[in-house]
Computed example of a mutant assay.
Amino acid sequence: MRLQLEGGQEISLRLAENAPELMTLFQILGSRGGDVEPMEQFLQLPLEGGEAAASFHSRQLVSVITEPPVIVRLETPQAAHPAADRPAEAQPAVVHTPRYLVIEDFLSVDEHEDMLAYALQHEEEFESGTVEGKASPHRQNQVIMGFAETAHSRLLQNRLLTWLPHLTRELDLAPFPLRHVESQLTASNDGHYYRLHSDAGGDQAGARMLTCVYYFFRQPRPFSGGALRLYDVLEQGERRMPMTSYRELEPVSNRLLVFRSHVHHELMRIRCPSRQFADSRFAVTNWLISTDQPDPQAGFGWGQLRCGAVPAQFEV
């Protein structure tokens, strides 16, 4: 695609058809004219596979040229809000910056080394990562899908249950009854990435409340890149749209990173010169899943960590 800016400047770049940055560009152009207040913001778009960036203000954007053509339908204020006589300011657009929590040295030295030994010993069990069970160019890495049943996963899960009251409090999330913990071990090597997404999307993932990423790898770090970007979101009524602004967090071995699962995030491309499996960036991602029906007989963790939610049959 090509962006034409004021003064005749032109920028060429590649974006996926469903990239949120592309929709932002169309919305900026579509907001001009009529009675709608134009969208104005500072933009930064990736160039050369993320090795460089183009920075400019939305006021400078003149046109967007895509090859092949991308057809979009931009909602008018009337279509988005059926009450035509409702003033536009009744539902203002608000930008939210995602909250996150970092816990260093989450495991002991021996536990951390044992986690790395497990990953290296089970290299043959890793397979290509999928999106909702299907291969996708949206994601490139290697995973052990059944990792949740291992003793190593249970170690992390039970440690997370110990931290859960603190995690919910720090992330401004109401305590919730826990159904179970999903767990996935990933290995990311040269050229691997995971494009912008939200873990709470889709029918099967709707009950995900917290995303907890535990990093571990060889020292000194044998790769570069692999940062995790947490994107700001523009909220207007029930609509949530990721913006181009973000917080970027570097992977640090034996670090736990926690954020709410609806947060849009992206794994940046990794460069691993040796391309050896042992030099990968390893991570265990745990998703804490809520339930509407706490089970007082559950044996996992602290009785499913009901967090003060009393089952109906025990209410007075």
Score class of each variant (00 low, 15 high):
D190K: 02
C212G: 10
R179P: 00
L167T: 01
F217W: 05
Y214H: 11
S198M: 08
Q219W: 00
H192A: 10
A207Q: 12
Y193E: 00
A174Y: 04
R218Q: 12
R179W: 07
A200M: 12
P222D: 07
H197R: 06
D190G: 03
L196N: 09
R208C: 04
N189P: 06
A174V: 10
T168V: 15
N189I: 11
A174M: 09
N189E: 11
A187K: 01
L167M: 11
Q184K: 14
L210H: 06
H197N: 09
S224I: 04
S188R: 08
G206H: 14
L196P: 03
L167R: 02
L210F: 09
F223S: 02
L210V: 08
L173P: 02
A205K: 10
V213P: 05
R221D: 00
R218C: 00
P175A: 03
G201P: 00
L185V: 12
G201I: 09
D199M: 08
P222N: 06
T168A: 03
P222I: 05
S198G: 15
L171R: 04
N189W: 05
S183K: 03
F176M: 11
L196V: 14
F223V: 03
F223L: 08
E170W: 07
R169K: 13
N189S: 15
L167C: 04
Y193W: 10
S183V: 11
F176I: 09
A200T: 06
Y194R: 01
S183W: 05
Y214A: 07
L210R: 06
P177D: 01
R179F: 12
A187W: 04
